[in-house]
Amino acid sequence: MARRAKDGMAITGERTASREVSRPAPRRDGLSEMSPGDVDTDPSRRPSGQQTTDYEDEARRQPTLLIRRTLRSGQRVRFGGNVVVLGDVNPGAEISARGDIVVMGWLRGVAHAGADGDEQAVVCAFRINPTQLRIAQFIGRAPDLTESALPDTPEVAEIRDGRLVIDRWQSSGQNHPGR
């Protein structure tokens, strides 16, 4: 499952968007004809004549690393693609990804998305309270001495108007209509 599926379409097959894709993206033609069960990325089993999005190709261009554990202090992940963590990222742990970073848990360590300079990259986590956040060349750090209440909600960090901002996660890609 570790594939880049930009706005959940690969999973739901919903008729959400071929709208305003700003970066060159694979053709998604034919997707609207598919029912959820039809998503099949194995070309050999693909019925001839039926148009299917080539997720294999997309996955090659945007590989994703799935980490099914908590990253602890001193553990560092560097990856030339997206990184998904099924667990927490503790203080002292570091993730550096060329693409996006998704943490299905607490992000308390250091995360660097778009490490090669991609300002479109995002960091999302169930709870974001990082030591430091970096996207492309932008760096944000946790405020000093705050026990201030964190929003008890999933959030996303991104570059908006030249600033690194953390915002509540909105469903179905509303955070990034351009992606």
Partner: peptide, 17 residues
């Protein structure tokens, strides 16, 4: 190295690049 703490005790952990 590998078990750093001085940054935490100094309250500077979030500034390390």
């Amino acid at each position: 190295i590998g078990l750093r703490n001085l940054d935490v005790v100094m309250g500077l952990e979030n500034r390390i690049v």
